[in-house]
């Protein structure tokens, strides 16, 4: 049984078939990269999995549980985490508070009412060391640079500790060195997490991807390892237009 099974997934936005009959499986502990031209439906696929968008048809099974009709917070509780394309951290909260919100092992109200937020734990320092934000722990997130904001959001996803993490362009706006570091972090996450990554940076994809799915016009164009994809005729046609 695969961790995530997507079957015949459809969504239509006012006549536009953004995702049109997607089928794929994701295995526990792999990094799957979604590639494709703009408007191919990559981000929409992530939106459908995490609950931001409701599908018009098809099924999404996570750990053998049908999730396509669940609320987004219910899916998050099952273990699906999401990083959006635009870095979305809480700018008015400090770095530590951001991580404390993200660390949602017990998301219920009663627990929240009867506990104080963790502002400095060994786990938190470990995560911040990993992304190099250890000395910013008390800083409001609004004071961070763009690159640091990206790091913070990755740190938040690590803190959330979701089994399946959906990443939308995690390296956008990063320098080459930062991208390399992100790739190293992703590979270290693989042991306990499954990742679906939408990314345009081919060198990044080459380093991290176990498997690639190329999308075009809402459906799957090709699937396979990086070598298979790079030699695939249909992919060349879609990208180069001949």
């Amino acid at each position: 049984m695969s961790q995530l099974e997507v079957r015949d997934l459809h969504v239509t936005f006012g006549g536009l078939r953004a995702v049109d009959g997607m089928n794929f499986d994701v295995e526990q502990g792999e990094i799957l990269c979604l590639l494709g031209p703009n408007g191919a439906g990559k981000s929409t696929t992530l939106d459908l999995i995490c609950g931001k968008t409701q599908p018009t048809g098809g099924s999404i099974r996570f750990q053998n549980l049908e999730i396509s009709q669940m609320w987004e917070f219910e899916r998050a509780r099952l273990g699906i985490g999401r990083k959006f394309q635009v870095p979305s951290v809480y700018k008015e909260l400090t770095v530590a508070e951001n991580l404390s919100v993200a660390r949602s092992v017990k998301p219920g109200i009663w627990h929240a009412l009867t506990s104080l937020p963790v502002r400095n734990s060994a786990k938190m320092r470990e995560i911040l060391d990993l992304v190099g934000l250890a000395d910013k722990i008390g800083e409001p997130a609004g004071n961070l640079s763009h690159g640091e904001t990206q790091w913070l959001e990755i740190a938040m996803l690590i803190a959330q500790d979701s089994r399946l993490i959906l990443m939308d362009e995690p390296t956008a706006g990063m320098t080459i060195q930062e991208t390399d570091r992100t790739a190293r972090i992703f590979r270290s996450l693989k042991a306990n997490h499954t990742l679906i990554v939408v990314e345009h940076d081919m060198s990044f994809v080459r380093t991290v991807a176990d498997r690639i799915i190329v999308m075009n016009q809402g459906s799957k164009l090709a699937e396979g390892s990086i070598q298979e994809i790079e030699s695939n005729e249909a992919v060349k046609t879609a990208y180069l237009g001949h």
Partner: peptide
């Protein structure tokens, strides 16, 4: 305001959408 509850509320004030993806039932809070 100083409890974890208060922290989650401040997170909701800033970005209620994002907070849902961390598993919080925003409407209940």
């Amino acid at each position: 305001t100083h409890s974890k509850f208060g922290l989650i509320l401040r997170a909701i004030r800033e970005d209620s959408e994002r907070t849902r993806y961390f598993g919080y039932n925003v409407a209940n809070y």
